[in-house]
Amino acid sequence: MIPVVPAPSHPFRAAYDVERAVLSALRIVHVGQSSALLEAHRGPAAGPRAGVLVPVTWSDRGLAPGGFALTPHDGLRVRRLLLATDPGSALLDLSRWLDASGATPVDLRMAPLRIDPAATGRLALLLAGGEEPTGTDPALDARVQRALAPALADAVVQDQEARVHRLAQRLIGAGPGATPAGDDVLLGTLAALHAADRAGTATDRAHRGRAALVTVVTDGLARTTAASRHDLAAALGGSFAERAHRMTAAITDVHAVGPAYDDALGWGATSGVDFLHGLASTAQALLGHWQNRLPATA
């Protein structure tokens, strides 16, 4: 039996890169409070698209790459429907969603952004103030990965290829969480680099450093979880979840810092804060590159 999920009844949004080819036979991976994770069928005929993820989100969760964002109402509907569906056997068909008149395509690529020193400073201050232990065991504490963020940022901005490789490999798939903390740090790092790169404010060196990072992360994708792999692959192409876009505002606008931090606290157990660490460290490194001077007078 293939239960068919009907098109949402309210206007909804679809990521511009959602892949039609994967939508007709999806398996339920996880149903959460404000999102559901679906996965392209791995059956015999599935081909290369097998295992591609389609995140369906609602409430204030925001759109994720390759996914759909529904109104709270539709989200609740879909959630109840999925909860009542046997995840083991049922396959769902969302292909009609793309044809629905209520679907608005959204480009999730990171826009060019100007990094603001005051905003970045405030963000770093907030992060410095909130360093609580994040796990039951010191070896599996997200702070281990967060602590690598400044060094990685520095290595990228200085284009120290060997150091970028070494640090990125220590981050991929490392740490607590369904999306391991190290991956979230990498996402934050990539977000800041993309924003600066597209704004043309990154130095040539930083640009080359970013290319080195992209190479090592691309090679390492198989070393992490499916959910993380999905997010990282999108980030390598410059696309980020809306939630990540909202967080990234924290390095461009001083007034966005508080809301972004609050937002981050609600993103996974540690993911949001991990992301902000990557973001803030990289923004600081990028700023430091051309701002590291003593003011002459008061």
Binding site: P3, V4, P6, S9, H10, H73, L76, R77, R80, L81
Partner: peptide
């Protein structure tokens, strides 16, 4: 404010597609 269909359990043969707001 606009209202959508309720979601829940459907009698056999029906789904949320058939539901009225």
């Amino acid at each position: 404010a606009p209202v959508g269909p309720a979601d829940g359990l459907f009698f056999p043969g029906y789904s949320i597609e058939d539901a009225n707001p």
